[in-house]
Design a protein around this nucleic acid. Sequence first.
RNA 1: GUGGCCAUAGCUCAAUCGGUUAGAGCACCGGGUUGUGAUCCCGGGGGUUGCGGGUUCGAGUCCCGUUGGCCACCCCA
Length: 448
Amino acid sequence: MPSFQGPKGTRDLYPLDAAKRRFVMEAWRSASIRHGFEEIDGPTFEHLPLYTVKSGEGIVSELFSFKRAGGEDDYALRPEFTPTLARMYAAKAGSLPKPTKWFMAGPFFRAERPQRGRLREFLQWNVDFLGLAGDPKAPEEIERAKAAADAEVIATCVSFLASLGLTPRDVRIRVNHRFALSQWLESQGVAAERQGDLFKLLDQRGKLPEGQFAVGLAEFGFSTQQAEVFQKGVVRITVDDPQSAGDAVLDLTLFAHAVMPLAQQFAQMGIVDWIDFDLTVVRGLAYYTGMVFEVHEASGAERAIAGGGRYDGLVELFGGPGTPAVGFGMGDVVLALVLQDRGLMPEDARVVELAGLRPDVFVLSNGSAEADAWVRPLCARLRAAGLHARHSYKATKNIGKLLKDGADLRARFAVIVESPESVTVKDLKTGSQSAVSLEGLASHLRGA
RNA sequence: GUGGCCAUAGCUCAAUCGGUUAGAGCACCGGGUUGUGAUCCCGGGGGUUGCGGGUUCGAGUCCCGUUGGCCACCCCA
């Protein structure tokens, strides 16, 4: 046992782990890029006040914060990206296009007690859509543009999930709308100042003991039957017929009308199969101003895979111009649990391939002294020609063992050196082999 | 921050009621069967039983602390 253990809640990534991380990062990147988002990044630590501005002093206990030895300034490792994003956007807002579509993926740090699906250092993918297309003025146009941006962001998320082989049967996008919910609650007699407490209650659904949820709702004037509708959560909204939304005991028509632009956008993007409208998704953050959503494993077994929503006031909070914005973050920890559970995390051999780690050629000697001396120079030549060439570091002259080494590395070809003039190329997939001249070796390996 | 369970080789595990030198498989390294990919045979390196204290003639085993892991609560940006 080593004398040192890694810090709590961190992970050591050995080659296959690193390959898997790369696989996830690449899937995040390519989904973002094909949806037209541009990659950015910021510092992994910021001035501490950047985080307390948005979340209050209470956040500090959840952060890794520090002062430089002898220094005065407080810093904190980034626990999320949104403040950095808002800061970066605010700094150049005047020269940025409308809309600005940015994404990033990188490490984040939170000083929380680790548990299932949560570590102290993790990767997070952030996708944000700032500003609106077409500089709309009329309220209906603004709403439509917001709904379009909301749907575009969610569609990017769906596109990623699908690219890994997940389906609407595996994961659900639970969508709600803070503003529409507020309006509707008001119509049900829940005054605005009481809604914060109700949101908290809705958020706790599922964690509360049997019956407690209904008891809590009763305090807001909802009947037992109505509580059952909340318990189920999901609201069906048919695009052509808003009146269809709701239930005999809970008239959600007003809510459905408010959410209709979103539902239409989801239909246009072809992602309705993934979406559930869910009254109980409120998200803890006070700064969400419109659509909010979470991605969950379909049975609800794990904590949220991703979460986000619209935060139209945030850029302004960080000193920029008032800018409508919508975005989400997705961590790698819960995602990995879900992928593993569904058998969708690539096998070791496959991840080596997906991460682009397969050697083109594995060079070995037939055992003669002359051939032994040529293995390394030949590798050097092949590498100079741009090929991924490897050789064994073992002392054995057993060709069978050496070939197994090459096969274990998933090399495409083995080259058996007989002499400086003569080599045999073996295709490790088909098993066929042939003599190839030294001059043509590199192009043979590249082309074949 | 609170609580429960756990910690033996790189991995999976074993070691009677507290009793002698802590074992096995796999993996890794080497040798052989004298040139072809999950063969077979032989050999090897690896451990202060997470760490620190205590009880005892004697501790992997019991007690306390500590670090880390898992799980739940709090929180979840």
